[in-house]
Each structure stands twice: as C-alpha cells, then as structure tokens.
Write a protein that binds this DNA or RNA. Structure first.
Lengths: 210, 210
DNA sequence: GACTGTGAAGCCATTCACAGCT
DNA sequence: AGCTGTGAATGGCTTCACAGTC
C-alpha cells in the first residue's frame, strides 16, 4: 500500500465525485475530463486530479477519464464494494427518517434494524425495517455482524448507547446526538451535528452583513 | 472590524464549545480553563485559546474563563443573539424530523412552516409546524421575512426549490439533497450529505483493516 | 503557581505550472 | 492539441513555547 496520509477533504470530495459520475453515466456520458468534473461539483480541475492521484493513475493523457471505470475505482477506494450492515438506535423522527433514507440503501448500506426503548414502538416496522428493544441491541450486533451503528437518540443517552455498541463489537459509529462521545482508538467515530451546520450558516450570514 | 479571515474549522469548534459551556452552566460550573474545555470536546488547549483569540480576550490570566460570559460571547459571534426565521421544504421523513428537531428551537431558530407538494399533507401539522403547498413558498418567504431555507426534497427537485427560495429573497440555504446546488455569490449555502458521512466512515474502516 | 494570549515554527492542503503522454 | 500526473510554490491551520498577568 503506497498511500500514507490522505486528507479527509479528499475523501469527502471523492464521495461527491462518485455521485456526479453516477449521474453522468445515467445520462450516457462515457468520458469526462478533470475540468468537467470540477465544473460539476464546484471545484478546480487541479484539485480533482490531485485527489485521484493519491490512489493511482486512472485517466488517459490527452483524453480524460472513463466515467464507469473511474466511478468503480472510487467506490473501491471508499470501501463500498461490499455491503455494510447498519443498525440505527433511536426510533424518533430522526431515526425513522434515517432508516428509510434511500441514499443509504442505494450506496452499500443495509439498514437491518432500529432499536428503541419505547414499548409502544417495539414490533412495529418503519418502511420495512423492524424496531427492536434496546435490550436486544448488544446481542443483535454480535449475532448479525453489524459493523456500523447510527446513533439518533437524545444527547443524554448517546454515550450509554455507544458503550453498548462498542462492547458488542461495532467498528464504526455515526453520531447525530449533539454531545461529545468517547470511543476506543480502534473504533471510527463521525459526528453530524445538525444545529452546528445551521450555526455556521448564521455566522457567515451575520458576517457578510457588515 | 479587525477580524479578516477566520478558519471555518474555528467556527465549527466555537459552536461545539458553546454547547459544552451550556452543559457546564447547567451543572453549576462558573469558571473553566482552556484545558478543561479541550478535554470536554476532545481538542487541545492551545486550539481553544487560539479560536477564542480571533475574536477578543475573554479570559483572565491565571484564572480561566467565566462560563456564562464566554458562552454569551460565542453566541454573539455565531450570530445567534437574534432569532432566525426558517422554513423547511419537503415534508418527507427527513423534513418531518428536521421540523421537530429540538436542537433548532433550543438555539435561535424558529421553524415557521414546512412546504410540500403532496396534496394529502397540505393543511396538516408536524408537531405544531403547519404544512403548506410549495406554490405558496415564494410569497411566504417574502411576507414572513424568512432568512433560511432547509432543503429536504429529492435530489431532482433541489435546484428548482432553491431557485424559488433565492428569488423570494432567502439569505441562507442548508441543503440535505445529495446534489450540487448553485446559488448567487451573496447567498450562503451549506450542504449536509448523510451518505457522504457514512462513506467517510467506511473509507476509514476499510483503511484501518490493513 | 496557574492560566491566558500570541508570535514563531511546523505541518498540511491547495494551487500553480509544466513535463509527459495520446 | 488536449488533458493527465506531479514537483514546486503558496497559503492556511495547528502546535509549540513562552512572555504576560492575576
């Protein structure tokens, strides 16, 4: 493996390129240049080439990139050639929305179950995904070899839930609770804070007003 | 105005500090050091001090920061002293979840209405927030002086909806649709792509396996 | 003694510019 | 002629280390 340190920003962009390439392919486009990709995703052509260069030489000089090949390569880089087993914890509004989110299924994610401790919800299904009690979370993760847990519970319970996931052998956590979470070093953790995103927006808006 | 260019990463962290300070305050803590904040948010103390130093001198040498004062200052920096009017477009799962998301109300955001073009939903309310037809979006934004639009419609309609928002005089857009959106230079745009977040997770997980 | 505020150093990411291929 | 791949230059963010203050 030659790669050593790849900027996270590069990975984010690769994911965006991938979606754009998929769109191009659907429109019957077979070849694309770094300049065209840049235009499609609001970036620069040098940036696109640099990002791809971390992982190999996917293009043809004088020509460009083959849309399908390139997308296949990116999908491989992102680790999406095999599907991932996912559980969602929290059957509230956000958890329900995430469990039906088409974008997950379309990429390589199987949402296998939702867990909640509201007795009235247990046994129900959200768009085909069953709801189980949190007491079964640990065993389910272990038995079904779930690799990713999406946390959509109130902030107060977030750490507690993550601890259960970790003890059951989860490998990655996507946390939507607005709370700082601790996990062991070998567990991947990403936080999505919806309010933070709005606040960055307002900061910029308040700024430009001057 | 002395500030010229503040890293976006700093703004994101300020938002996180703010939430942590709020939590400290609720626990009765009145004074805090940069080191303690760093510990609470998984950062470094130097980073905390640098972030704050962009905007002024809020601490006392040898002592630390006053929790309440500092949080007040950050809230001011983030532009959250006045409340912002927000509309959500798309009454699907995600739009519904967002419209009831407590984190928005708790900070400075009024979710005034949800818009959708599904006739069966018009007139209903999602947790107190009314649903109106998209045909009324333009006039509502204008009349109610809505500053922020949250886009939670399918990717195909996202640009279309944003165009309406812009023409009605919106100032900021938070886009959840997995599609690259164009807006004029004077409109703030932020994208939250849920699938991208999962994909970064899988990239890192696939990496560490080697 | 403890902790902030900050210049300087170090590190990382992006942009530039061009050599190399088709 | 057109476009990729990449070393070099630039710019930006983070970390270090310490002077300044309480």
């Amino acid at each position: 493996m030659k790669s050593l340190k790849i900027p996270e920003a590069t990975i984010i962009r690769l994911s965006v390129y991938s979606r754009y390439l998929h769109q191009l392919d659907k429109n019957g486009v077979t070849t694309v240049s770094s300049g065209q990709i840049a235009e499609g995703v609001n970036g620069s052509s040098a940036q696109v080439r640099k990002d791809l260069a971390y992982f190999g030489e996917f293009g043809t000089r004088g020509v460009g990139y083959n849309v399908l090949d390139l997308n296949q390569q990116i999908i491989k880089i992102l680790g999406l050639t095999n599907r991932w087993n996912v559980v969602i914890i929290g059957a509230g509004n956000l958890g329900s929305a995430l469990s039906q989110y088409k974008g997950f299924q379309e990429r390589a994610f199987n949402v296998m179950a939702v867990f909640d401790n509201d007795i009235t919800k247990i046994g129900l299904r959200i768009g085909g995904v069953p709801i189980y009690p949190i007491s079964q979370l640990h065993d389910f993760v272990q038995k079904e070899k779930v690799q990713i847990g999406i946390v959509a519970v109130p902030a107060t319970y977030a750490q507690e839930v993550v601890d259960v996931l970790v003890s059951a052998g989860i490998k990655g956590v996507l946390n939507f609770a607005p709370r700082v979470i601790s996990v062991p070093d070998d567990i991947e953790l990403r936080n999505v804070d919806l309010a933070v995103n709005l606040e960055i927006l307002t900061y910029n808006m308040a700024m430009t007003k001057r």
